[in-house]
């Protein structure tokens, strides 16, 4: 099968790979580049575990073709901590016990980050809406909502 070149910036690093035409961004990230933080829970765009940020927008990497991401800037949960210091969302997920089995967590954090990037002080309803595409089967969601609200408060205190 003919290979297609793809090149993008992942968590600040330049990446270039040849993939089969039709390869999803999820599979390119996991199998080719070795970033396994996005998870495959359904491969049909319903669970949100594969969520990543492409050029500032939340994307389901299982429904995104890698070849459409040429030149893009991509962020995944594995790239959030800087110099070993956790991102406020990661810190909040730890502190509020928002992660149990951990499988949905990277996708949840991506969805939450896009929310806070656009809406630094969201209402509870806005948090619920922003996480509505991500399925968690362990927590019952409440600790996750609290984590996002906690991170938003931490951000606004740091900004003040």
């Amino acid at each position: 099968m003919a290979k297609v070149p793809v090149q993008f910036t992942l968590n600040g690093s330049e990446k270039a790979e040849f993939v089969d035409g039709g390869t999803t961004l999820l599979n390119a990230l996991r199998d080719k580049i070795g970033d396994t933080s996005p998870k495959g829970g359904c491969h049909q765009g319903t669970c949100g575990a594969c969520s990543v940020i492409v050029d500032g927008e939340l994307r389901l990497s299982c429904l995104t073709l890698a070849e459409t991401c040429n030149g893009a800037t991509i962020t995944t949960t594995s790239g959030l901590a800087e110099g070993g210091v956790l991102h406020p969302l990661q810190r909040a997920f730890l502190d509020t016990f928002a992660s149990q089995c951990g499988f949905c967590t990277p996708g949840m954090i991506m969805a939450a980050k896009v929310l806070l990037d656009h809406t630094p002080n969201p209402s509870r309803d806005e948090v619920v809406e922003a996480l509505s595409g991500n399925i968690c089967r362990c927590t019952g969601y409440e600790p996750i909502i609290q984590a996002v609200l906690t991170a938003a408060r931490a951000n606004s205190q740091n900004a003040a």
Partner: peptide, 23 residues
């Protein structure tokens, strides 16, 4: 008492290795 879970740092940084993360 609330105690930190030992596996949570791996979960929130995407570093926890699930079986399918082996290639």
């Amino acid at each position: 008492q609330a105690r930190p879970r030992s596996d949570s740092p791996g979960h929130v940084t995407g570093k926890t290795t699930f079986f399918a993360d082996r290639n």
